[in-house]
Design a protein around this nucleic acid. Structure first.
Length: 332
DNA sequence: TATTCGTGGAA
DNA sequence: TTTCCAAGAAT
């Protein structure tokens, strides 16, 4: 990662910017490095300090987060930045105990920041470390029930010497060698100590409890433009799915799609629909489009001028609906 | 303790 | 095409 500080530099006393570390660790929650890289670069360019982020407009931050998912992270990111400014003088607290009090910072992130940015000997237990420990001790207890024992294993290994380097090293071991599929045991530095490697069970670990099948829900998105080109959008409520994000007015997403037109209009149903999969359900989203008169008065949402609107500010499912609708609206 | 909460890429 | 997931936190 470009925001990493190399071990040789750390040994000389340099530590990375806590703000950059916090931002990356929050973005990396349940998210791949490849997906995060561009977002982290843009956030650091737009808001170089926690003070700058704290002073940002909510809508700008949510728009910059669009597409990365788990939008509660972005809402908590702002809460956390503003708390750091208001209660900590604009400097991140340096200990696990203090960090975990902040919004959006849980056990893993508090451990990662305190270790990487402040060299506290905290134990990081993320998906990588869970995998490494389950294999090292050949523990077949299914996750998430196995977390306490895996944390106990991880604590035994946590180094009091250069704890920041250790935290990154054990996670990198999981990310690059002790991988979920086809681990590179032949080049693993702890091969000789790995019980799963000896038993030949590394490919089956960590064991996980089977997850429930995803139901399919249905909904309708209403994409309307006023005759001056303005788009009808609404900011979703802070709680729930896509909370705080800009999007098209939609029906509720349930088993049967109700009719909840945001404004009376001559709606045109598209002959295709968008498919999207969230964490816990599949969505089939039908799309209706309409042109509205200058004096239209919608029940929901607000008009965004054409020169202000960018689909990049929308969550991915809303971008899918937009892509389907654009061609049709052009032809009207 | 169990559920909610995104996304895009790999197999 | 469908499943499975990847550096979790909040409720």
């Amino acid at each position: 990662m470009p925001w990493r500080v190399m071990p040789t530099m750390r040994k000389a006393g340099y530590l990375p910017d806590p703000y950059a570390v916090w931002l990356s660790e929050v973005m990396l929650q349940q998210t791949t490095v490849a997906a995060v890289r561009g977002y982290h670069t843009r956030f650091m360019a737009f808001w170089p300090t926690v003070g700058a982020l704290a002073a940002a407009e909510d809508a700008d931050v949510m728009a910059a987060w669009a597409g990365l998912g788990y939008y509660a992270r972005a809402r908590n990111l702002l809460k956390c930045a503003r708390t750091v400014v208001a209660d900590h003088g604009g400097a991140f607290p340096q200990t696990y105990v203090a960090l975990i009090e902040l919004p959006g910072i849980g056990p893993y992130t508090a451990a990662a920041i305190s270790a990487i940015a402040f060299d506290e000997a905290s134990t990081v237990l993320d998906g990588n470390v869970e995998r490494v420990m389950s294999r090292l001790y050949d523990d077949h207890t299914p996750l998430p029930a196995a977390k306490p024992v895996l944390m106990d294993f991880a604590m035994r290994h946590t180094s009091q010497i250069r704890p920041g380097d250790y935290a990154q090293a054990v996670m990198d071991l999981g990310a690059t060698i002790c991988t979920p599929k086809k681990p590179a045991c032949g080049i693993c530095p702890v091969r000789g100590a790995c019980k799963a490697q000896m038993a030949g069970t590394q490919g089956k670990l960590p064991k996980k409890t089977p997850k429930k099948p995803k139901p399919t829900r249905h909904g309708v998105a209403y994409i309307a433009r006023r005759d001056d080109g303005a788009w009808l959008l609404e900011t979703r409520p802070d709680r729930g799915l896509l909370g705080g994000m800009l999007g098209w007015p939609t029906t509720d997403w349930g088993d049967t799609p109700p009719d909840q037109e945001p404004v009376s209009a001559d709606w045109q149903e598209l002959d295709t629909h968008a498919r999207h999969t969230f964490t816990h359900f599949h969505l089939i989203l039908r799309v209706q489009t309409a042109w509205l008169p200058r004096d239209a008065l919608p029940d929901r949402g607000q008009f965004i001028p054409a020169d202000t609107f960018s689909p990049d500010a929308l969550p991915t499912v809303m971008q899918k609906a937009y892509t389907l609708a654009v061609a049709t609206l052009r032809n009207v």
